[in-house]
Write a protein that binds this DNA or RNA. Sequence first.
DNA 1: GCCCAGGCCATTT
DNA 2: AAATGGCATGGG
Length: 319
Amino acid sequence: MLDTRYPIAMKITEICARDFNLAMTLNSGQVFHWEKAGRGFVGTIGDLPVYVEQNGTVLILGGAPWPAPETRALPRIVAHYFALDHRLAEICASFPDDPVMNAARLFCRGLRIIRQPRWECLATFICSSMKQVAHIRQISKALRERFGVALKIDLSKDHCSGADSCIVHTFPSAERLAKNSERELRKCAVGYRAAHLLATARLVDSGEVDLDEWQVLSDTDLRQQLCELPGVGAKIANCVMLFAYERLRAFPIDVWIERVLRQHYFPRARKLNTARLREFSESHFGEHGGYAQQYLFHHALSRARKSAVSRKQARKWQE
DNA sequence: GCCCAGGCCATTT
DNA sequence: AAATGGCATGGG
């Protein structure tokens, strides 16, 4: 039956996306809310519900109701979000030429650092400390479902199997989160991070902190401002700089990246403090160090996951 | 039960 | 300055 709310129920548009791997980008641990639906993914870009599917060098788009004004702008919004304008070949060519980096570059072909909304990125990464990627996805989902705005996506049967519609949720605004008690936030499995999330939400909501104003700051000043927020240290500040402020030099060092650096760049080096690692990462990986870092991170994590699966299968074999 | 996870923070040396 | 322990939660 025709949905009479809109003259045309669903408008599918296509855009060209060269040097881009959608699934790799969405699964690389930089963004946590996109979910598989049919042959593509559903999620939100800001307040817009979006369906996106990759077919070679073409992205098939849908999701937003037609003829909302945003829908006409959808191709531009999606292209900007996925940073299709980044000159990926040049960025990858700027990485250092060493065995580890070359393996990661080969493995992560088409991975782009996307442009995330600032508050959404900041809040999500405050929840990320001492959490596995799968858990961060759970937390993001819980926060959205409890406090976000539900939006319906009409899925064309031509492009999706199964259900013909689904619901996605926006990430809750700082204002929405600031209204809650810490106890309420803890229902989303954020644990001890609830206090930090709430305190930062209230700083942003009150206007004392304006994340958009900070875009004019230098890398050093931006990092310093971010680190003053509750629950934000050097690592999370660098993630937010990289994923929400397009500071492609920012090089977050988490436990995985630290392992990669120690094993492959400093074998047999004891007494290697974080300051020394930071110094090395900033000088060795160049002007797109953040990109290099994300390639190293995703490659290392994927290898670990793969070997975990192998161990599991080996155990099964033994029975 | 154990160990670990895209860390941060307060406290102690 | 540098090292240490606590912190919630869930998966392997």
